[in-house]
């Protein structure tokens, strides 16, 4: 089992609740915008604290049972919707930010994501697709044990989106990293998902 999540969070008027436990592979959180999909990723990453429940990934408890690991100890590779590259560091330094000493996979991952030509560039000079690839690389290279991806195809045109989708499939398939993937696009969900969790607005 890869993701075992049961959380409740009250945010102002809105109540976000989710319960799912999914097998290894790509778990797609699917639903309209504004239902709290990103909040669920935030809770798994440790950036938001659920009011109650538990979060386990690959059998490891991140939250619950009197445990609440800080984000830096969760080993989540969070690919944010807005990339969030560090503007004062070149691509190379961004990729290495979370790396532990001598990550043997540097070359593999840099080539897989095709970011080698970008290494000496500044984030502000990258296109949306390039930034997204760097963000994915940075997340994987941090020694992540699973990936959280928040609408990684948003703001990309068709060809770029196709390219990133192929990458996600390869990362989930070949590398066997569990991925929790947020989207509001049904086709994207169908194509990528090992399992789909549909989040809807409660009435």
């Amino acid at each position: 089992m890869s993701f075992d999540v049961d959380v409740v969070l009250q945010r102002g008027e809105a109540r976000i609740a989710a319960r799912f436990s999914t097998p290894p592979g790509i778990t797609v959180l699917f639903g309209p915008s504004g239902v709290g999909k990103s909040s669920i990723l935030g809770m798994v990453a440790g950036l938001l604290r659920p009011d109650a429940g538990h979060i386990r990934v690959g059998g490891r408890t991140l939250f619950g049972d009197d445990r609440d690991l800080p984000p830096e100890r969760r080993r989540a590779g969070y690919v944010f919707q807005d990339a969030r590259l560090f503007p004062h560091m070149r691509v190379d330094a961004n990729l290495r930010f979370g790396m532990r000493d001598g990550h043997q996979e540097w070359d593999d991952i840099v080539d897989l994501l095709g970011v080698r030509p970008l290494l000496s560039r500044w984030p502000r000079s990258l296109s949306g697709g390039e930034a997204k690839r760097v963000a994915i690389g940075r997340a994987i290279l941090s020694g992540a044990e699973f990936l959280l991806m928040d609408e990684p195809l948003s703001s990309l045109d068709g060809a770029r989106a196709e390219e990133i989708m192929g990458l996600v499939e390869r990362i989930g398939g070949q590398r066997g990293l569990p991925i929790l993937y947020v989207t509001h696009d049904r086709q994207e969900a169908r194509r990528l998902a090992t399992s789909i969790v549909e989040i809807s607005r409660a009435n």
Binding site: G46, Y78, R84, R100
Partner: peptide, 23 residues
């Protein structure tokens, strides 16, 4: 300073002290 960058640093394994120093 964009707090979201600090969050990103934390998810990448940086302690609060390192996040302060590097971001």
């Amino acid at each position: 300073v964009d707090r979201r960058l600090e969050q990103a640093a934390r998810t990448l394994g940086a302690s609060p002290a390192r996040t302060f120093r590097t971001i």
